[in-house]
Design a protein around this nucleic acid. Sequence first.
DNA 1: AATGTACGCAACCGCGTCATA
DNA 2: ATATGACGCGGTTGCGTACAT
Length: 246
Amino acid sequence: MVRAPFYDKNGVKKGAWSREEDECLTAYIQKNGHPNWRQLPKLSGLARCGKSCRLRWLNYLKPNLKHGNYTREEEVIIIKLHQQLENKWSVIAEKLPGRTDHEIKNYWHSYLKKCSNIIDNEYTISELNSKSNDTLEEIDSNKNSVTPQSPSSGDGKDFGNYILESSTLPKLAETSTEENYSPSSMNSSLMEEDNGAPWLGLEEFEGDFWNEPFVLDDTHTTNEISIDDIELMISDYYDGSYMFST
DNA sequence: AATGTACGCAACCGCGTCATA
DNA sequence: ATATGACGCGGTTGCGTACAT
C-alpha cells in the first residue's frame, strides 16, 4: 500500500518505514525529544531525512493518536469547519484531539468531500443542529443519490461492512506482522479507547446520522466543543482574535 | 481465474513562514 | 535590514487492496 523502500543517490532512505526504524525513532525521541529535526537522523542513526522523521513521528508514532473510526461528530465538525476555513487542515486538526492534519486531509479527499456535497452549503451549522427529522429526511434522500463509500475499507466499496471489517484496531491486531505491521499497534496502550462508531453499517447509517438532529456527543471527544463554539471559533478566526489552543 | 479499475493510505515534494545570526 | 536555515503546511504521487468484469 505504501511506497517500497529505496535509497536515493545521497544514501538517504525513502519509502515505507520498517518496524526497526519506527522503534529507533520512537526510542530516540522519548529519550531526547526532537529539538532539531535535521540533526535527528544523524544522532539517532537513522538513514532518513529530518523531514521524513518529523512526518513519521507527528502523524503515526506520536502517542495518543487516533486512527480511523471517525465519529459522526468528528465528521460533521470537519465538514463544517472545512466549509468555513477551507483547506486549513492544521487549524481543523486542532479541534479534533488525536487527529492530525495529515489524516484529516486524507479523510477529506477520500470520503468527506462527497458527504459535504450533500449538505452543500444549504444549511448552517445551527440549522443542521435544529433540523426536524422531516427536513433531514430530505437531506437523506439527496444523500442516497450520492452513495458515499466507506473510507477505510481499502477500496471503499464494502460500505456495509465498514465497522465489521475495517474497524482499525481489530484489523491492526490481526495484521500486525513484520510485513504488514502498523505502528498503531505500538501505541495501542497509549490510545484512549475509541467508542465511536462512524456508522453502524449501511442500514443504520441511513437511518441515524442523516435523520437525527445533530448533537455533539461528549462521549466521543475529549475536548468539549459545541456548535456555538465552532461558529464563534470561525468568526474569531477571521477577525484574528481567536487563539487556537488544545 | 485473470485482468481491469477504483479507491485509500502513507509517503514525498515544494513553498511559505519564522527564527536567528 | 538582509541572508540563511529549519520547520510546518498543503498538494501530489505511488502502491497495495478489493471489487467488477
